[in-house]
């Protein structure tokens, strides 16, 4: 974990309201693991008091850069989208517990992503595909919102779904998954509703969910981003104990 001034080396629109940014630093990118996130300070004055947690989509250790993909949904993410090459952004990270990928060898692994829940799965797919057979099911609202289809296709058997049927499979990711055969493990990241459906549908195999919640400090001190666990274990802190959790441990 490091607080570092990161330099914008790329920032462009990737899909509908969706941007891809590459940030260069000294230490933070090198430490980053799949599934972890970075907490970005927005603006230079005190208008924006909360950082924005953004998952890490890729890491280039030689270039010392990370790639993030974010959706513009408000003033803070709009500020991010207007950064130009050479601008500096204050980043805290990498934060949280990411995916434990080393445990898998020769497995058939399913990745399920929804919208801006897709990015952390790309970094995971790159690592997993070295030793496993990876299938990716990526859901988007509409064809204009799709990103990284070709990137995923190079490393995984990739399926795209759209809610409005404008591209790929028409319908929900869970409907498509039912027709895809069997897997040993799955990793999912996306809207809460999608995670809940996947959690229930794939309860017979080992699964990991990457959770999202409105965050405060990002380091486990403020208790803003909690998630209820099974077996009366109380809450976990998504920023510190997560964002990746065992699917059978949390109640969504």
């Amino acid at each position: 974990m490091k607080l570092e001034c990161l330099r914008v080396i790329e920032n462009h629109q990737l899909a509908l309201d969706t941007y891809e940014m590459r940030l260069q630093g000294e230490v933070l990118p090198i430490l980053s693991q799949p599934g972890q996130f970075i907490h970005l300070k927005i603006g230079q004055v005190s208008e924006f008091m909360l950082r924005r947690p953004v998952s890490i989509a890729d890491v280039d250790r030689e270039e010392k850069s990370i790639t993030i993909i974010y959706k513009v949904v408000g003033h803070g993410t709009n500020w991010l989208s207007t950064r130009i090459i050479g601008d500096e952004i204050d980043g805290l990270g990498p934060l949280g517990n990411g995916f434990s990928l080393q445990q898998h060898k020769g497995e058939s692994i399913l990745l399920v992503g929804g919208g801006v829940g897709v990015p952390p799965l790309y970094y995971a797919a790159k690592e997993l595909s070295k030793h496993n057979h990876v299938t990716a099911v990526l859901g988007f609202q509409t064809s204009e919102a799709i990103f990284y289809e070709s990137e995923f296709s190079q490393i995984a058997k990739t399926w795209i779904t759209t809610d409005d049927g404008s591209y790929g499979y028409s319908g929900l990711v869970t409907e498509l998954i039912a027709s895809l055969g069997s897997f040993t493990t799955y990793y999912a990241c996306g809207p809460n509703g999608m995670l809940k459906s996947v959690q229930s549908q794939l309860s017979d195999i080992k699964g990991y969910l990457s959770l999202e919640e409105r965050m405060g400090c990002g380091i486990g001190a403020c208790l803003a981003c909690v998630c209820q666990t099974r077996c009366n274990k109380g809450y976990i802190k998504i920023c510190k104990d997560g964002p990746v959790v065992n699917a059978d441990e949390v109640i969504l």
Partner: peptide
Amino acid sequence: GNPTPRVAETSSGMLN
């Protein structure tokens, strides 16, 4: 404590 969401940003501040 309370259910989530527990925080929201506001102009130059936050609600918790």
